[in-house]
Write a protein that binds this DNA or RNA. Structure first.
Length: 260
DNA sequence: ATGGTAGAGGTTCTA
């Protein structure tokens, strides 16, 4: 089973690229982030025509996540638990029946957190605490679980072109990296890191300042696996070529295969 | 050269 995550930076601007990529890559489950659309505005018909079920959790203008899947989910929940006042659409979870029981997949759009001297940074850190609490709760289920998405965290210096440039940025601040590491310490596995100890590619290249032609990127899109999912991990690939397409997202798809 | 680009939506925000 192939599971992918992709921050598409606007579904309306990216629908043609998404359809091309779905046909080429043939994933079973896709977690999308930054759909930048309300649920009613999401172009579901074109995607359904390729054989996918479409579940969205959108909002007007910004944020928004979705899960596309060949198999219909048994259950879908929207919103990250832990703060009823949080209205930003950044999290959803789908549950699928599989031969061995069930598979849970969450689509995550973790807050960017910049500028760090505003309320955005504490919001990021509290969101990460809520994610850790959710992950810890799910861990007790002892089920395969994939937390896939744009984490807006550069885990290690090797995951960016020039660590000096990122010093002090919310994506690379010690608090952000420590919170990410706490997920790993709970027992979650960074799939790409596990398959390739030093992945010499990134998942995001800024539109500005020639970041793509200079390969000035960062690795911030991650698939974090519960032990039951990590035991079934095969390949993990960053589909870098998609960044060179016409009118690309600034992120590329990241995919894993699980033997489920 | 103190910049640059993109998307959504609406005369600006988020990233």
């Amino acid at each position: 089973m192939k599971i992918a995550t992709w921050n598409i930076n606007g579904i309306k601007a990216r629908i043609d690229n998404l359809l091309t990529w779905l046909k080429e890559s043939d994933p079973d489950i896709v977690c999308l982030q930054e759909i930048k659309s309300v649920d009613d505005g999401f172009p579901r018909l074109e995607i359904e025509a390729l054989g996918y079920h479409v579940e969205t959790h959108g909002q007007k203008g910004f944020n928004g996540v979705a899960i596309l899947s060949k198999q219909s989910p048994d259950e879908v929940t929207r919103g990250l638990p832990g703060d009823d006042a949080d209205e930003q659409a950044r999290f959803m979870e789908a549950v699928f029946s599989v031969g061995s029981g069930c598979l849970r997949v969450a689509s995550i759009y973790l807050p960017n957190g910049n500028p760090v001297d505003t309320e955005k940074f504490p919001y990021k850190l509290s969101w990460m605490q809520r994610l850790e609490a959710f992950a810890a709760e799910r861990l007790a289920f002892e089920e395969p679980l994939v937390l896939a998405g744009d984490y807006n965290v550069i885990p290690e210096p090797v995951d960016c072109h020039d660590p000096k440039v990122w010093e002090g940025d919310a994506l690379f601040r010690p608090e952000s990296r420590t919170a990410f590491r706490r997920l790993e310490n709970l027992g979650f596995t960074d799939a790409v890191r596990t398959v390739d100890d030093r992945p010499e590619t990134y998942t995001f290249w800024d539109y500005q300042a020639g970041a793509w032609p200079k390969n000035n990127g960062i690795r911030i899109d991650h698939l974090m696996l519960s032990p039951e999912a990590a035991d079934r991990l095969g390949a993990a690939t960053i589909e870098k070529h998609v960044r060179a397409w016409e009118r690309p997202s600034d992120h590329v798809p990241v995919a894993i295969s699980l033997t489920i």
